[in-house]
Amino acid sequence: MIPLNVSLLLSAALFAIGVIGFVIRRNAIMIFMCVELMLNAANILFIAFAQAYGQIGGQIFVFFTITVAAAEVAIGLALIVAIYRSRHTLDVDGLNELHG
């Protein structure tokens, strides 16, 4: 069957791509999608370890993670639309009016 270290490497690579995208892209929606990518990488490991140890708890955790991610996306996109309505930009470097 599949060695656990293969899934660890795959998940780490996916997480790394998410981190790189998070840092180098300046668009709020792209940053948000990269966060989803990182969540996905963590979910893969939960499923892999759940099967490796024969525990159903890992799959239950992914179930709840997906629920939280859905709620997070709904709130986050509403925030992004609200920011765009008032600022007319989604460049996160332009959203710096909060510094004292």
Partner: peptide, 16 residues
């Protein structure tokens, strides 16, 4: 992570 993956989880434990 690669270091950990190779040295901590070396044995394939995934079975049906």
């Amino acid at each position: 992570t690669a270091y950990l993956a190779v040295y901590r989880f070396g044995q394939p434990t995934l079975t049906l």
